[in-house]
Design a protein around this nucleic acid. Structure first.
Lengths: 240, 240
DNA sequence: TAGTGGTCTAGACCACTCA
DNA sequence: GAGTGGTCTAGACCACTAT
């Protein structure tokens, strides 16, 4: 058979364990089988099993205690985590109905800040996208996205109604997002934006600046989100 | 010799590489020696070398390309990261002079929110600490810390002038902090707090709620920081 | 084809916990 | 002492990139 069965063994073990955790087959706080037992179960060597377990430990699913065993953590990071998933995915996973309206999409010249974050020259062409995002019908944030135009030819062919930026970047342009830098601050909003979000002239908002990078640390996108921080909280997991 | 030389080999390799990166011996974007070369250099096996490299990859120092080599990343996560270091360490590392004044320290009863975050019963004894923190003489944030009193006997013996909470938790009480959950939102401040931070009656601030956990996912501390988000930005790294 | 990283084996010995 | 995880070896073969 030529199935997707070419998955490496350590990946199979990871999948096996996470699915057992998700189904509560492995309950929180419970000790999971020893490394030896996984060796027998998957007919593999201990180093391979350990690769799987270490990876799950670093993701927060498991923790190990020498001499005692390996245990399922009380919480696992990934859900609450600052993992790179779009707004749509995050909010829908949390049970909200999402909507977004495209306010603007045009090609402009990079100002200093945009140029710096995208690591391009000032006045280079960038695609500017402005969206207003709703959760359950309530406007929650305004999003300004800047893309290096030379990296995304024919972008508007892909950017259709309520599109997911990350989907387009990864699936249409085959640029794998590896990590992102985020900066959070507060700011007084300009009149137009303030009215869009709050229906008042001046409001103070949370500002989230996000730059996504690929494995080569090339910037893939720069987004500034203006968020009504009384309606929506950001969540992170910090690790030692 | 009975030095600290009992460090495992993979740890020595990690230290060797990070120090080379920090000293720019390994420049950004540069290909570092191959796994084979590290084997010879440290007289060890490839699996051991790979353990070191994989760890540094996950921390963002390096990235690998199959068939080509291992390269120094443009940025490394840890500095900007949501790593668990106290305010003092973070700000001093960034070149600011820090100061903090202790406004209050007392034992109180846990309200619902505190109880939930510390995973204790309501009305349990908690140590409440209020501090005002400055950077270069400017007040930046108010910090409210709640500790489960039963976990920290004789706390005020350790809590001396400008103390580092994490130091006390880890060094005096030997409770290793493993990870933390953080939630960020905005909020209108009460009059007293608003005046402390901004010298005006009502200001909108960034609120950072932080719960630290040990490896057993027991909560070690719960802190709410009220931050002047126009003076101070939070930084994170998100990973896939 | 040579050189790189990716996966994996079948052992070994050590450190720690618990009964 | 039995069982657990922590470190490590000395190989193997495969997949991918360059030239």
């Amino acid at each position: 058979m030529m199935e997707e069965n070419q998955k490496p063994i350590y990946q199979k073990i990871e999948d096996y364990i996470t699915s057992n955790i998700k189904s509560s087959q492995y309950a929180k706080g419970m000790m999971i089988p020893s490394e030896e037992e996984f060796c027998k179960l998957f007919n593999t060597s201990r180093m391979t099993v350990r690769k799987s377990l270490d990876s799950l430990v670093s993701k927060g699913y498991l923790h190990k205690v020498q001499g005692r065993g390996t245990f399922v953590s009380q919480f696992n990071f990934e859900k609450t985590m600052n993992s790179i998933t779009g707004w749509k995915e995050t909010m829908q996973a949390a049970g909200f109905k999402t909507k977004s309206t495209l306010l603007k999409m045009e090609t402009i010249k990079a100002n200093e800040k945009v140029a710096k974050n995208l690591n391009i020259k000032m006045e280079s062409d960038v695609i500017f996208i402005e969206r207003l995002r709703y959760a359950d019908g309530i406007p929650i944030l305004i999003e300004h996205t800047f893309l290096n135009a030379s990296m995304y030819p024919d972008f508007n062919k892909h950017a259709i109604h309520d599109f997911s930026l990350y989907d387009i970047i990864e699936k249409e342009y085959h640029l794998p997002i590896h990590h992102a830098y985020q900066k959070i601050r507060t700011q007084k909003l300009e009149k137009r934006e303030s009215n869009l979000l709050f229906s008042i002239d001046d409001a103070s908002v949370m500002v989230l600046e996000n730059v996504s990078f690929d494995t080569y640390t090339r910037p893939l996108e720069f987004t500034i989100s203006y968020i009504d921080g009384e309606k929506y909280a950001l969540r992170y997991v910090a690790q030692k």
